[in-house]
Design a protein around this nucleic acid. Structure first.
Lengths: 102, 102
DNA sequence: TTTGGTAGTCATGTTTTTTTGACCTCTTGT
DNA sequence: ACAAGAGGTCAAAAAAACATGACTACCAAA
């Protein structure tokens, strides 16, 4: 088909771009690349971020399959967020974006 | 003081992600990949988009150096938007994003 | 028992983005 | 002269995103 119906199929990258670009999300992602992250750690480390925003961002990243939420039953019981496989596959894309930014 | 440098906490890809993820922008970008685009063509082809939104999106993509605005002085004088070099460098990133979506 | 850490939710308010509809300029066609 | 197409602008409203402060629940140490 020609360019006629391109408007119908919304860009496949659109949802992912939206998910990744919400406030705090790139920063959360970057933390997650370096290993499991925890709620209060992010709250401490990401200056300006607040509970609600982080909770929302984490939930969205989780529901998009980028992060996995894991309950760690060890003492003291806590929660970890890890990069999923899908999340891992975004790492090189972030690196390229950063290359373009420079 | 030494206010913690926002720049060191801020993800370098963040601005670009924001720029690319605004409403209609991924679709505009996809059109632009296939050659020069024009305002009223986008308005016709991208269903749901309105003048103002497109104008804003085009301006932002232009000011981020992703599109170039060119006045074509030929017969029916008109305006074209083309992918800049910077814009071109985003094409493989879009392709990878789309690969992940699948 | 009070304090402190972990991991949040909820209602509300503010800010930013996006949409709407009217209006504008310039050029060509009738 | 008048209409119609191209390429917009502007003010205002509506919708979406983000922030704030109070509150919850669980567990452990002092």
């Amino acid at each position: 088909m020609t360019t006629k119906n391109q408007a119908e199929n919304t860009c496949p990258a659109e949802g992912l771009l939206k998910t990744l670009s919400g406030k705090w999300k790139p920063q959360i992602f970057r933390f997650a690349v370096n290993g499991p992250i925890r709620f209060n750690t992010l709250l401490r480390e990401i200056e300006g971020a607040n509970k609600q925003s982080l909770a929302t961002a984490l939930k969205e990243l989780e529901s998009e399959g980028i992060l996995h939420k894991v309950i760690i039953s060890e003492k003291p019981l806590h929660i970890e967020y890890n990069l999923s496989e899908r999340g891992q596959s975004l790492v090189p894309i972030f690196q390229q974006l950063e290359g373009i930014v420079k």
